[in-house]
Amino acid sequence: MSAALRLVNPQNTSQWDESDIKELAASSTRSAMEMVIRKYRQPLYFHARYIVKDHQEAYDLVQEVFIKAMRETRLFEEDFKIKAWLFRVTSNLCFNTVRNRKRRGALLDTMMRPEPFGADQLERIFCGEQQSEVMASLDELSDDHKQILLLRYYDDLSYAEIAEVLQVKLGTVMSRLSRARMRLMDVMQDTSLAN
């Protein structure tokens, strides 16, 4: 069996929207599921990576999300929002992982774990981003505020998509995002004063 997903046309995943995938699901659930995986695994990996800050954990979590998606019976139903569902499940799993890690104090294990795929280069790319003042300050925020800022500015979701992911109203997204940015501003000011 080939390691790569056996897909009809793997080059154009970004051009496929959810309605195309649902249409494909009517004839082949497997092909539709492969399209979902190819389309969303990269954004989900980076979303997970921003929260858990560990390649292997983010990778495993995304894999777990797709396994959950395969078991989700409503996935290809007409009014089901696949992207919102995937981001919601990923966020929940990531924040649970971070909470469990904090509880177990397993941060040292994570730091000592070797990273594959040219870890040095990968880390250099991420470190450049992690060292930015804003990214460093994000960790000081609550999960709600951190999540909404990541969804908006790192995952590039629209306000409407964020409302679907968080299952809140559009007005709530606006006010929560504003509060998150105000809080971030306070944290950044405190940090600069401390330095």
């Binding site: 997903l5 699901a25 009517a26 497997r30 599921m33 396994i67 395969m70």
Partner: peptide, 14 residues
Amino acid sequence: ELNGHLDALVVAPV
């Protein structure tokens, strides 16, 4: 990993 799950996927098409 996912190929294994996809092979075992028995979901009726919509």
